[in-house]
Write a protein that binds this DNA or RNA. Structure first.
Length: 560
RNA sequence: CGGAAUGUAGCGCAGCUUGGUAGCGCACUUCGUUAGGGACGAAGGGGUCGCAGGUUCAAAUCCUGUCAUUCCGACCA
């Protein structure tokens, strides 16, 4: 690309309304531009990077024997009603009507259509295994788009689907895809962790996430100091220990105006982890009161799973009035409401909890003092908790979910009646897996991991162009001639460079190439007449080479 | 969906309290000087002040409504 006569611009100042290093830099460097909330234009430089990322993804998918196709984005709503997911996605689905009044949605993910496609092919067990993928635009009406390309409402996703006749086959297909995902992450040079995760709205048997590590990541990852345990906090089990001290006598004490657990803890000089707090929730319009250790927080996925519910909210005053609970002083003893107790609470002794009486708490409460309806692990782990695998200590990290793999089992084949005849001539359901990667998220995550005060620092294979040839002065004929000659040689030999042939001062050209993150710069300057140019990496010192050696030297640098 | 804020030139902002010729920096155009790390001088071009309604002789400014964007929550692959 020759910059003169190209669509190329950079911004000197930070961009308002961009809230992360990656989105700010990508906007300043002219890769992307926000169009509306959570919707971006992908500009030419951004497209270059997307193509490189997608090429790696396609290569690894093709290697597993996965075949590429393309599904529509515009899909009749019925398809999702049939699978039972229309309700599950709810408002996060973009919905519209055609001129005849027919209901359509814009696809948020495509299990249904792939199952329908599979139906056209699968009749017998001999028709499997096979796998399909696409790179397509997905639409999800996120309540709160954020962090540039990281949480958006319209985005490209590579999604693949595997079809097998039994669980064993699915496991094998999963392993192949999983391995391809590892290769993709490695080739993208992402710093990532693979963690166990909740299956969420996808359903199924197993979900693992490929998480790019960065402090702005929206997911909390639970890692062990000692072993390689790695899990998304939403499914990390809490390992609790039985308190063995002797039970004391239950006693009601005055705690005037102490509503929060912090206030109670401070007033009574009892640490928060020796208190039990109440969370007054609304589950299916029933007041559901959860009791957890004072310093814990409720884990939404865990409690929904325990109760078999889809949604949980805080209870309103009206709902609270259906019981004798006193907000701020709610305790499990003598409480007439649906009670869910965290398993850890049952191992506590002589704890403090609300007395269901304004201004009073109990001390020395014990599990034998109250009844409950449900018990389970319903809280988040904390840093310093015990690793469920090795007993070591756990710590947190934050990640961006770049990829996700699911063993779906027969959930969708059952919903959509995807069956085959086995060797005994009986109908069986197909076993499916689904696998997603967000290429633009990967791009944003890469920038988050590779950015400094001068701009982006792309990995060599991902950069929009691996090298920029900078002509110091466009009024120096020899420089212009040599710069163009080197450019032509590179193009002819298969490396596509940028040629900065603009009439700008050198400083501007250097700054721009650093901002957009070109890994190497060939500077054609004052020694051009001697046939000597400089090669400078994005970070590091320049070397001088003869112009005729520039290509080979650079190829070496790119390959090492 | 709750709480808060902001919409003024391509980008970043001031002006609004106290109504009276629409401004600054960057970017852009022309000329000159400059030329290996975001130059300097001079002269210029560019804006339905988010939109609609109201008050007023007069509205970027005051009032009402509305839309959009952002932040904190809730929510979320």
């Amino acid at each position: 690309m020759k910059l003169k006569n190209s669509y190329f611009f950079t911004l000197r100042e930070d961009v308002k309304d961009e809230d992360s290093a990656s989105s700010n830099m990508l906007c300043r460097a002219g890769f992307i531009k926000k169009s509306s909330a959570g919707v971006y234009m992908m500009l030419p430089l951004g497209m270059k990077v997307m193509h490189k990322i997608n090429a790696i993804i396609r290569d690894e998918m093709d290697k597993t024997g996965c075949q590429e196709l393309l599904m529509p984005a515009l899909i009749p709503e019925d398809v999702y009603i049939a699978s039972g997911r229309r309700e599950g996605f709810g408002h996060s689905m973009f919905a519209l009507k055609d001129r005849k009044g027919q209901d359509y949605v814009l696809g948020p993910t495509h299990e249904e259509l792939f199952a329908i496609a599979a139906k056209m092919k699968i009749q017998s067990y001999k028709d499997m295994p096979f796998s399909l993928y696409q790179i397509e635009t997905k639409f999800r009406d996120e309540p709160r788009p954020r962090y540039g390309l990281i949480r958006v409402r319209e985005f490209q996703m590579k999604d693949s689907y595997t079809f097998d006749k039994d669980e064993e086959g699915m496991d094998e297909a999963y392993a192949k895809q999983f391995n391809a995902y590892k290769n993709i992450m490695d080739r993208l040079h992402l710093n990532y962790k693979i963690v166990r995760a909740d299956t969420g709205v996808m359903g199924g048997l197993l979900s693992e996430e490929f998480q790019a590590l960065t402090p702005i990541g929206e997911d909390t990852l639970v890692l062990c100091d000692n072993c390689d345990y790695a899990s998304n906090i939403e499914v990390s089990p809490v390992v609790s220990t039985q308190n063995t001290e002797e039970e004391k006598t239950l006693e009601m004490v005055e705690t005037p105006h102490c509503k929060s657990i912090e206030e109670v803890s401070e007033y009574l000089h009892i640490p928060q982890n020796r208190c039990v707090k109440a969370l007054l929730m609304n589950v299916k319009d029933t007041l559901t009161i959860c009791f957890v250790r004072g310093d814990r927080e409720l884990n939404e996925s865990k409690i929904l799973k325990l109760l078999g519910a889809n949604e949980i909210n805080f209870a309103d005053d009206e709902l609270i009035a259906t019981s004798n609970a006193v907000p701020g002083f709610t305790g499990p003893i003598g409480l007439n409401a649906k009670i869910v107790v965290d398993q850890e609470v049952l191992k506590m002794k002589n704890f403090c909890c609300g007395a269901n009486k304004e201004g009073y708490h109990y001390i020395n409460a014990n599990p034998k003092d109250f009844k409950y309806d449900y018990c389970g692990d319903i809280v988040n782990v904390l840093e310093g908790d015990i690793c469920p695998v090795c007993g070591g200590k756990i710590h947190f990290a934050h990640g961006i979910e770049v990829g996700n793999t699911f063993k779906l089992g027969t959930k969708y084949s059952k919903a959509l009646n995807l069956q085959y005849l086995d060797a005994n001539n009986t109908l069986q359901y197909v076993w499916m897996g689904s696998y997603g990667i967000g290429p633009a998220r990967a791009m944003a995550a890469l920038v988050e991991q590779n950015v400094d005060e001068n701009g982006i620092n792309w990995p060599k294979d991902i950069a929009p162009y691996p090298v920029a040839i900078v002509i110091i002065s466009d009024r120096d004929e020899e420089q212009v001639k040599l710069g163009n000659a080197i450019y032509d040689e590179f193009v002819q030999k298969g490396i596509e460079p940028i040629l900065d042939d603009r009439s700008e001062r050198p400083g501007i050209k250097f700054k721009d190439m650093e901002l957009i993150g070109i890994p190497y710069r060939i500077t054609v300057g004052r020694k051009a007449k001697e046939g000597i140019v400089e090669i400078k990496p994005r970070i590091g010192d320049a070397i001088e080479v003869k112009a005729e050696d520039a290509f080979n030297t650079l190829r070496e640098l790119l390959n090492n």
